[in-house]
Design a protein around this nucleic acid. Sequence first.
DNA 1: TATAAAATCCCTTAAAAACATGATTTTTTA
DNA 2: TAAAAAATCATGTTTTTAAGGGATTTTATA
Lengths: 205, 205
Amino acid sequence: MTVKVFVVDDHYMVIEGIRALLQNEPGIEFVGNATNGESCLAFLQRQQPDLILLDINLPDKKGFDLCKDIKSKYPTIQILGLSTFNQRSYIDKMMENGASGYLLKNAGKDELLKGIETAMKHKTYLSHEAALSLRNEESEDLPVLTRRENEILEYIAQGLTNQEIADKLFISYSTVDSHRKSLLHKFGAKNVAVLINLASKYKFI
Amino acid sequence: MTVKVFVVDDHYMVIEGIRALLQNEPGIEFVGNATNGESCLAFLQRQQPDLILLDINLPDKKGFDLCKDIKSKYPTIQILGLSTFNQRSYIDKMMENGASGYLLKNAGKDELLKGIETAMKHKTYLSHEAALSLRNEESEDLPVLTRRENEILEYIAQGLTNQEIADKLFISYSTVDSHRKSLLHKFGAKNVAVLINLASKYKFI
DNA sequence: TATAAAATCCCTTAAAAACATGATTTTTTA
DNA sequence: TAAAAAATCATGTTTTTAAGGGATTTTATA
């Protein structure tokens, strides 16, 4: 049986790269590609592939959300996340939203084929480096944020003050301040500038 | 005469994409690739291509700096910047450091060939979207920072206070504060959180 | 060489963040 | 169901930022 593969990525060169890598592979058929979420969903209405390679950074929609959408409408389609970042929070989010695994764009042909094969067996596949980053020191000492911390981090990045956040969430100033403190502490940041810099760098926001 | 093309990019899929696009193109030979600055320079010691497609985000070195290095050692090699961001400051930096142009990774075969052709004629080539972004409203209203503002923005992102920056630059607190104010104003940011968020998003830092 | 732009400096006030230190209540999970 | 983790709240102090309103000196550049 031939595995029908569809690619969603806004970079034409990456699409071409994957197409080239999958060309002449027995058992795999490249059935098409999309460069944004909208055209991806439009394609799926007409035709369903077996597996989608889905970039996380799409122009019109976050890859995470698209992943969720696809999985809810077409639960049998396997999805492999695709991105340049081997960031724990990225990998986690992708898996939470129903992906079967995660490939980095610097993955080679072997990994790509292995990933497709593994996903089609309904097992989880992670890129070598992505898998490493889950055990890696550098990633390991990246903070793990709670639901509330993530929420408040987002508001801080938007420029809201503690009081404004407190009003918005119907909690006291003190509580927001506590969360802010723990954010600074978890990131090892001495002030909000460093906090936002790191959070942005590591794609928390 | 055949144009020898070398690709430097840390994403294997992009390299494969370019290789696939250039395959069977008369007059163009894909002579190799590197995934980091070091191996790129090592390659150049043995062999010089006519043109290098150079990614801006490299693991060991900033693409900008590598561009400068290559140009100073091998002035006859043409360089085309390669990145996913069509950000004015990126394009500017690349050109300042001696690049002949700039290609986005969502460029198609036509643009790629056009870019190579144009660069080999010692003319400037910009990706369609990159060229647009130089005239685009969205990019146009992105701030243009002065030397000092850039410098101080960097220190703010590192977490230094006005006083610490003042000490470091041997200027007064007031001066730093003025620059900080103009940064906030130029970015339309109400506080440093928004400032750093935007600056990071648009690759100023 | 005018003119504009950039960099420099100063003062004041109010708001917000950062730091310290502690505690209670909910929720999760082993 | 205990223990751990998360979320909640409080009080007080010090430091830093933000906003407002100037002004002078360098440095580019038309």
